[in-house]
Design a protein around this nucleic acid. Structure first.
Lengths: 207, 207
DNA sequence: TTATTATTGCAATTAATTTCACATTTGGGA
DNA sequence: TCCCAAATGTGAAATTAATTGCAATAATAA
């Protein structure tokens, strides 16, 4: 009885979650879809519809319990899993992600770093030692890595993806600007910066 | 006679553009929607529909001229403008973006860096000197900056956005996980890493 | 107690996007 | 020259997503 939730809805849930975290810190215990919508520029109807896809637990005339809703969304998104990440490619972007503090508030932690460059292997980034790509299989198993983060050049990304999957990661977060082929049971999310930048360029050119 | 192109289509155009760049390097002069689709995992019908929104210039029975199509997409996306970027917040992420080479192939260049931390101001990143946020107005005008890139903490992002707009930038690329209020004539693109990561977590939790 | 106001949940509708189906065009080979 | 295979372009159908309208519920104040 798996309810199908649309990708559009899934992409809005983190926004709700983050806003609820902030609201919770403000010691507010109830919030309406209207207020949540104002903070995020999303219509309250859209929010109610999104939330309704996974059950009803708002209270008519009142609103939603902030704490309860936050936990519910956290569960839907699987954030209680405390996912463990390995970053492959400790260049500028990989290094930045290794230091990215916002992960922690979502329950993610970086537990391994890999690179193929001998000049980088052995150094430490944010307290984590950089290992050789050749040691991937062993270290990923040992540190119980769930998610592989790919921050290598596009030309090497497919090879790295194959290795990560062979080593046992359960999902891939890809920053390389290339389409990766992965088995259908391995979730893959692409973070393609050139799309957003190009879209910005497009909108700036319209007048 | 401005043709309205959907955001979904605009987001696919950079993928077509990038693939065409690669195909061009392979010295291939003609490509079919079928071949392009295979490389990107997008149906050929979808590609033809997307391209049809801005005119018809494929050749029936033949396909599309790689060079012509690439240039056409570049023009649609406004990539011929050679946009000039300023990055505000030279932390790990801002520093990584300052070094990001993929920008160049799309015609973007980073021409200014700003931070409020006195320990960082005056240092150089990728050959560009980091300036104080207080010098923003003057430097943005002088260096003809088009796009402001926000890589400061969420709590400071709105203030930075206001300053960038006052200084005259024509678009904003925001990496801070917060909803920014900007005038409707200033295009804004949000690059929210927690959305993708949360979506990955969601899909990994479904079984 | 009763009216009023706030707010959710949901069905119906509308809008946007994708997929399908096929007529049309082009080049090449018999 | 004529037929066939390979492609595009596009209207129609199907699907997916967003919006609208409203009944139902809860708290509060008269």
């Amino acid at each position: 009885m798996k309810k199908i939730i649309s990708q559009a809805t899934i992409d809005r849930l983190p926004l709700y979650f983050r806003t609820l975290q902030l609201v919770e810190e403000e010691k507010t215990s109830i919030i309406s879809s209207d207020e949540l919508g104002k903070r995020l520029d999303i219509t309250p109807e859209q929010i109610r519809k999104d939330l309704a896809t996974f059950g009803q637990f708002g209270r008519k005339g009142i609103g939603y319990d902030v704490h309860e809703l936050k936990n519910k969304i956290s569960n839907i998104l699987g954030l209680h899993n405390k996912w463990r990440l390995a970053i492959v490619g400790v260049g500028h972007l990989g290094g930045a992600l290794a230091n990215y503090v916002n992960f922690a508030s979502l329950g993610f932690s970086v537990v391994a770093l890999f690179d193929k460059d001998k000049k980088i292997i052995g150094s430490e980034v944010n307290g984590i030692k950089v290992n050789a790509v050749s040691a991937m299989k062993k270290i990923i198993a040992k540190r119980a890595v769930d998610i592989g983060v790919i921050t290598v050049p596009a030309t090497e990304a497919q090879e790295v993806a194959d290795k990560l999957i062979k080593a046992g990661v359960k999902g891939i977060w890809n920053f390389a600007p290339v389409k990766l082929n992965v088995p259908s049971e391995i979730p893959l999310v692409n973070e393609d910066l050139s799309i957003g930048l190009s879209a910005l360029s497009y909108h700036m050119s319209q007048d």
